[in-house]
Each structure stands twice: as C-alpha cells, then as structure tokens.
Amino acid sequence: MELLTLDDRIRAVRHFNRLFTRRIGVLREGLLNSSYSLTEARIIFELGQRRDLTAADLGRELGLDAGYMSRILARLEQQELIERVRSEADGRQRILYLTSQGEAAFTLLDQRSREEVSELLNSLGEDEQLRLLKAMETVESILDRGLKYAEPFILRAPEPGDMGWVTYRHGVLYKQEYGWDESFEALVAEIVAGFINNYQPEYERCWIAEMNGEIVGSVFVVKSSETVAKLRLLLVEPRTRGLGLGSRLVEECIRFARRRGYQKLMLWTNDVLVDARHIYARAGFKLVEQEPHHSFGYDLIGETWELIL
C-alpha cells in the first residue's frame, strides 16, 4: 500500500467529512426537515433518552462551551420545549426535562431520523450494509479512544456554592503547597465577596472547571478601569495539572477581555508560584514589576504581569 503523506491523509479525512455531512443532511438549515439546528436537536435527543441531566452533564456529554450551552438552553426554554426543576437530591442543581411540547418534538425528530437512516440502508445491498456497519464501528472505536485523551474538562459559569469552594480550596492548597497561613484565605474571601457584591456581567467573568462532575479549577476576570481588567484567583487542582487546564482558563480570560474591549489584562502573583508564572509567560504576559513584601507568614516577592490586548 502506498505510503500517504500527512497532507494526503488530511485531504482524505476532509473529503470523508464533506461526503458524510452531505449524506446525512446536517448542512440543511433545519435538521431532519425541522426548525431545529443540529445542536438543538441533539439536546432534545439527549433529554428524550436520558433522565436527571443538568446543564453541566449535557455540556460534558456534547463537548459544548458552557456559555454556548446556556444560550441554546435559554432558546429552548423560550420555545417551551424544556424546563429546569430543582434537584431533590441537591438543591443547588437544576435538572433539565422536556415539556409536553418537547416530548412531541423528540418523537418527531426520532421518527424522522429512523426513516432517514432506513432510507439510507435500504439503498444498499445486504453485503454493503454489513461493510458500512463494520466500518462505522471501526471509526467509532478509534475516535472514541482518542477523545478520552482530548480535553477531559468543561468550563462553566459559577453556581451557588462555587464561591465557597474557591475560597476553601485556595486556603487548603496554598497551606499544603506553600505553608501560607489563614490570612491568604481571608484575602481570597475578600476578592470573592467583592466579585459577588459588585458583579458587572458585561465586564467581568468567572469560570469554574469541572471534570467527571467534580470542580477542579477556577479563574476570574474583574474590571479595574474602562481599559484595564485583572485576572485573579487562577486555581488548578493538583490531580488535573498537566492536562492544559491552567492554560485553557487563562486563554478564556484573554478572549473575554479582548471581546469586551479592554486594552490591557493585568495580574498579581508571587515568584514562588513557578507553574502559574510559566502559564502566564506562555500566554504572552510580561513581568513589569517586582516588590518584596511580607504576607501570609512569609517573606515573598510580589510580581505584576501585564498583557497588552
């Protein structure tokens, strides 16, 4: 068999993608001749087939950004296709359910999907059908295995209780890893309280990272002035370090700051936080100031970093 170059392989995969997406109709304005987009239909399918799903569960399952997922769910709620019900097991969570209209939409989409796949299979002979199914099984097994080593976490907006987690985990981890005393936890609590009490959604954000249903990280962008924002409280749980989560959280902050028209993104850290400093440097931040100080029970060197957007 002729050895294919990387460019040849890329062209082959893209050719297959074009053929397959055209054949199954995902390029049409409405999936399955409905008024729903591919993403909307997939969410309806998931909620029609599974129970007790939260928005975070759906985001993990579908690999969707939390902000995008939130907008899609809001649209489906406006159409009275879904509803959110407080979980009896955990009052902080909202479980997603299809309404009666949503159930009707699911039934219609499910029937049309079955009819379309049946039409595709009936156009093939018995041997061709078996070859197709075997090939699909091979593709699925290879790609599913690869996805397990792709980005294993999701980023979402904060929910009730998350801010307490941010404060608690900062206090615990910085004590364990650097020996810092409770005054650091008090500082984090002040920052978190300030964010909650003075939150300006157009100019500020918090991202909570989840993996396998557990919180594993956080980061904040807060407004300093009309042109300057601050990156604060970057935290990554030790067991998830090395997966690119810290870099991803910082990238989200940078993207948000640019979209909001800030001219500069700044942060304050300490020279002992070596891993965090590497993340900032890779993201393009520059160290602009150093100043010795005694805080959290230690003599430290505080650092100011900035990124021109």
Rank of each mutant, 00 (worst) to 15 (best):
R114T: 00
R114C: 03
E115T: 07
E116R: 02
V117D: 04
S118A: 13
E119F: 05
E119W: 05
L120S: 01
L120I: 15
L121N: 09
L121Y: 09
S123A: 14
S123I: 14
G125D: 08
G125P: 15
G125R: 15
E128L: 12
Q129F: 07
L130F: 15
R131G: 07
L133C: 13
L133T: 12
L133K: 12
K134V: 11
A135V: 11
M136H: 11
M136R: 02
E137V: 05
T138I: 13
E140G: 14
E140H: 04
S141M: 15
L143E: 14
L143N: 13
D144Q: 14
D144V: 11
R145L: 15
R145Y: 13
G146W: 07
K148F: 11
K148G: 11
P152A: 10
P152T: 12
L155C: 04
R156W: 08
P158S: 12
P160I: 13
G161L: 10
G161N: 06
G161A: 04
G161K: 05
D162H: 01
M163E: 05
G164S: 07
G164V: 05
W165A: 03
V166L: 08
V166D: 00
T167K: 03
R169G: 01
H170S: 02
V172P: 00
L173T: 14
Y174I: 12
Y174W: 12
Q176L: 06
Q176M: 10
E177W: 11
E177R: 08
Y178H: 05
Y178C: 06
G179A: 01
G179H: 09
G179D: 02
G179M: 00
D181T: 07
E182S: 06
S183H: 09
S183K: 03
F184I: 01
F184M: 05
F184A: 02
E185D: 14
A186N: 11
A186Y: 03
L187C: 14
V188S: 04
A189H: 11
A189V: 12
E190F: 15
V192Y: 06
V192I: 06
G194K: 15
F195Q: 01
I196Q: 11
N198C: 06
N198Y: 12
Y199M: 13
Y199E: 11
P201T: 04
R205L: 04
C206G: 02
E210V: 07
M211V: 08
G213V: 04
E214R: 10
E214I: 09
I215Q: 10
S218M: 04
V219Y: 01
F220M: 04
F220K: 03
V221A: 00
V222D: 05
K223Y: 06
K223E: 14
S224W: 00
S225F: 07
S225Q: 05
T227Y: 08
V228E: 01
A229H: 08
A229S: 09
K230E: 12
K230R: 07
L234G: 03
L234H: 00
